[in-house]
């Protein structure tokens, strides 16, 4: 390819990158600046971060709590379901898989309204964080399912299980010894995705939350609407601190690992020394 095209493409890609990253940097700076309108020369401060921490840390803890509960729920529901779907390659299985993906396709507002219309009258449930948890689990379950399913369909699960069975392993032993360890990467990827999505979920949560069950993104929306830019930025900074490590871990996991396969080195294939 001619170098001119290369440079143009590189410049374009860098511009796109700037479009995505510059606002992040600006927001981080704004959260640490005394007065963003004046600019950096007004000085750096942790004042806003501390203010947010004192005023909103409950939303942060609640978000982490819901995210962990959501992870537990999607693991318990999703991993066995993925296993069942990977084994049963029937049309019914495919249809059920499609159905389970629906909460991602359907806008969060619709799901949230449906939940409120059905369970809003149960006030104990409606006002607890479990109500939000249900919404998050609905939305994140497909991601766990798909991540695990992707790994399971890439390995020859049927033969591996037959191999274990030929050595005497029963169904439960096969699930624990063979299936779970071999979809570990999928479970890990799914878990990171679930945590990240739950931590940042807003579409559903905004309708499902009550003043006593505000999550971090809900608090963020409040802050953006009513507080000064520096506070919003400091709050966003806290959110970044939580979510960026998860995103980086996800990227590290997604990077294809170099296969350490040693090609046909069969030089040591002298006839076997038999010990009958």
């Amino acid at each position: 390819m001619p170098p001119l095209i290369f440079s143009l493409q590189l410049a374009f890609t860098l511009a796109v990158c700037a479009f995505l990253i510059v606002p992040v940097v600006l927001s981080v700076l704004a959260g640490l600046t005394v007065n963003y309108f004046v600019g950096l020369e007004s000085g750096l401060t942790l004042k806003w971060v501390i203010e947010v921490w004192n005023g909103y840390r409950d939303t942060l803890f609640r978000s982490v709590g819901i995210a962990l509960a959501c992870l537990a729920l999607t693991l318990v529901l999703g991993v066995p379901a993925a296993y069942a779907l990977a084994r049963a390659k029937s049309r019914l299985g495919r249809a059920f898989e499609e159905l389970l993906m629906l909460p991602v396709a359907v806008p969060g507002l619709a799901t949230a309204l449906a939940l409120i219309a059905s369970y809003g009258a149960l006030s104990g449930f409606r006002t607890s964080w479990a109500f939000i948890l249900v919404g998050h689990a609905l939305f994140t379950l497909p991601f766990m399912l798909r991540a695990v399913l992707a790994v399971l369909s890439a390995i020859d699960l049927k033969t591996l299980e037959e191999g274990a069975a030929s050595l005497g392993a029963g169904p439960w032993q096969r699930f624990v010894h063979i299936v779970l360890p071999n979809c570990r990467d999928g479970i890990l990827a799914g878990s990171l995705m679930v945590l990240t999505l739950s931590m940042g979920e807003f579409n559903l949560t905004w309708l499902l939350h009550t003043p006593l069950t505000k999550t971090l993104p809900v608090g963020l929306a409040d802050a953006y609407a009513s507080l000064r830019l520096e506070v919003g930025s400091a709050y966003t900074l806290l959110f970044f601190l939580m979510i960026v490590p998860l995103l980086l871990a996800m990227q590290a996991l997604a990077r294809p690992r170099r296969r350490r396969f040693i090609p046909a080195d069969d030089t040591d294939l002298a006839p076997l020394a038999l010990k009958p």
Binding site: I155, D156, T159, L160, E162, G163, A164, H177, I178, P181, N182, R184
Partner: peptide
């Protein structure tokens, strides 16, 4: 087995 079915996690 034809494809050996060795457990990759072991």
């Amino acid at each position: 087995f034809q494809s050996y079915a060795l457990f990759p996690n072991m």
